[in-house]
Amino acid sequence: MSLESGVPTYGMTARPTDGRAQRQFPARTLPDEDSRLLDSLTAARAGNAVAFEAVYRALAPRLLRYARGLVGQDAEDIAAEAWLQIVRDLRKFDGDWDAFRGWAARILRNRAIDHLRAASRRPARVSTLDEIADRPSGDDTAESADESLSTSAAIELIAALPPDQAEAVLLRVVVGLDANSAAAILGKRAGAVRVAAHRGLKALAKRLEAAPGGPSSNDRPSGNAGQTT
């Protein structure tokens, strides 16, 4: 990994991509950005280093924030280890951009758990969902919360939530996965992940409002996580 650029370069060779290969996932219409990243991912799998850099720059900040929520100050080391594995196994990956994000997040999560176990710390992945009786919120708060949950201070707040809520928020809001993808990583049902993310965002909203200078009720977005259904 180049320390100057932060982009893994080993095992990658720049060569032209096959135009036909770039259209191997035409099943659904994608937003322009997702379509561009899918093309970059396809080219990166074929060995194009420039395309891989585009993939890395798009996903690395989200994975690093996810790692911070899992292991705190050791996040950069865990993220680097995860990218080593991603580079090594990229040619074996088969899927679209959303599937790639889930695959990469799973690799990072496994590295984080291994790290915590090696450090003789108990991995904070304990489910408390058995006590949750209410149904998931119908509101998808991921889009409205994305901007406010991107700072290091916000990641620390998320990490202080109950473990199931913290990781649901990290995967749904920070990494940007849908409920089904996050559920597959966590080994839970999509509805349970929605509940955990909703409750976590609701708790975060309360903490932010209670903090000095926190937003007032008049500043809440219409999709406020504090609403219940």
Score class of each variant (00 low, 15 high):
1 M>W: 05
2 S>V: 07
4 E>C: 07
4 E>V: 06
8 P>R: 08
8 P>H: 12
11 G>M: 02
11 G>C: 02
12 M>V: 13
14 A>D: 15
14 A>I: 12
17 T>A: 14
21 A>F: 01
21 A>G: 00
29 T>I: 12
35 S>M: 05
38 L>M: 12
45 R>G: 03
45 R>F: 06
45 R>Q: 07
49 A>H: 03
50 V>C: 06
50 V>I: 11
51 A>K: 10
52 F>R: 00
57 R>I: 03
59 L>I: 12
61 P>C: 13
62 R>A: 14
64 L>P: 00
65 R>C: 04
66 Y>K: 13
71 V>A: 12
73 Q>G: 07
75 A>D: 01
78 I>H: 02
83 W>T: 14
84 L>D: 04
85 Q>V: 10
85 Q>M: 06
85 Q>D: 03
86 I>G: 01
93 F>D: 12
95 G>F: 03
95 G>K: 05
96 D>Q: 02
97 W>L: 03
97 W>Q: 08
98 D>C: 05
101 R>K: 08
102 G>D: 12
103 W>D: 01
105 A>Q: 05
106 R>W: 01
106 R>F: 04
107 I>M: 05
117 R>E: 15
117 R>M: 12
117 R>D: 02
119 A>F: 03
120 S>W: 07
122 R>P: 02
123 P>T: 10
123 P>A: 09
124 A>S: 15
125 R>T: 10
129 L>H: 09
132 I>F: 14
132 I>E: 13
135 R>L: 15
138 G>K: 14
139 D>G: 00
142 A>Q: 00
144 S>I: 10
145 A>S: 15
148 S>W: 10
149 L>V: 05
152 S>D: 07
155 I>N: 12
155 I>Y: 07
165 Q>R: 15
166 A>R: 01
168 A>K: 03
169 V>Y: 06
171 L>H: 13
176 G>I: 02
176 G>K: 03
177 L>G: 08
179 A>H: 02
180 N>M: 07
183 A>D: 04
184 A>C: 08
185 I>R: 11
185 I>N: 07
185 I>D: 12
194 R>L: 14
199 R>N: 14
199 R>V: 08
206 K>H: 14
207 R>C: 01
208 L>A: 15
209 E>P: 00
220 R>C: 02
221 P>Y: 11
222 S>G: 09
223 G>T: 00
223 G>S: 01
224 N>C: 06
225 A>N: 02
228 T>M: 00
229 T>M: 08
229 T>L: 10
